[in-house]
């Protein structure tokens, strides 16, 4: 009998130091030699939902409070809620707890649709400015905020979670799943001069905890 395993579209060449299996996913908690950062972490196993409804601002329908204007986000208890447009919101689970999709027809589980990556640490935004003309450092926006636009000409959803004047900080992003190999290749290539390396879920969890404890921007 063949084992059932769920595969993320992202594979890193680094040696695994520690991993665990959850819900048939083999999740890397840490790689060898993750270095001082910046880091690239694969979040492919984390649940993502799409919520669309014409009355999306009314939480009594979906059970979920969503930010009121496109481009704004809530980060609450490891759930990142991104308002995309008049009728659509993305929900990205950043923790490790099991999730149950609400019984409301506006929700679609889109975990499988996209690559889900985090890029954070020193020089994170120096890497980003080689990948896109989008202004991730725009001083007029406060973190966390959502940009819908291209990285390497591939449409992405990018949420900037932390940002400092020295171009350190970080963001997380999704794009169409099929682009995983080429997107990871492009990001690692661009980040090489800054020491960008793959890291595991633990480092990501530590970062998110730190971000949540700080006041944003």
């Amino acid at each position: 009998m063949t084992d059932i395993q769920r595969y993320s579209p992202v594979t890193f060449e680094s040696s695994v130091k520690e991993s665990e299996v959850r819900d048939n996913w083999k999740i890397v908690l840490a790689y060898q030699n993750e270095g001082p950062g910046p880091w690239l972490v694969d979040l492919g196993h984390k649940t993502r939902w799409d919520l669309q409804d014409s009355q999306i601002d009314d939480p009594s329908q979906s059970g979920l409070s969503v930010p009121s204007s496109p481009g704004t986000c809530f980060l609450a208890e490891k759930k990142l809620i991104n308002r995309m447009n008049r009728t659509q919101t993305a929900i990205w689970h950043l923790g490790i707890e099991e999730t149950i999709i609400p019984d409301f027809n506006g929700f679609t589980d889109v975990t499988e649709s996209t690559v889900f990556l985090a890029l954070f640490g020193p020089d994170a935004f120096h890497v980003a400015e080689k990948l896109t003309a989008l202004d991730l450092m725009d001083p007029a926006r406060t973190t966390p905020f959502l940009l819908q636009g291209p990285l390497c000409h591939v449409p992405c959803q990018i949420v900037i979670l932390e940002r400092h004047a020295d171009m350190s900080g970080g963001f997380i992003m999704t794009c169409s799943r099929g682009y995983a190999d080429s997107m990871v290749q492009a990001v690692l290539d661009s980040g090489r001069e800054f020491g960008l390396r793959p890291a595991g879920e633990t480092r990501f969890a530590d970062w998110v905890r730190k971000v949540q404890n700080q006041t944003s921007n």
Partner: peptide, 8 residues
């Protein structure tokens, strides 16, 4: 059409 962005 915002092809590389929000799709509006």
């Amino acid at each position: 059409f915002h092809r590389d962005g929000c799709g509006a």
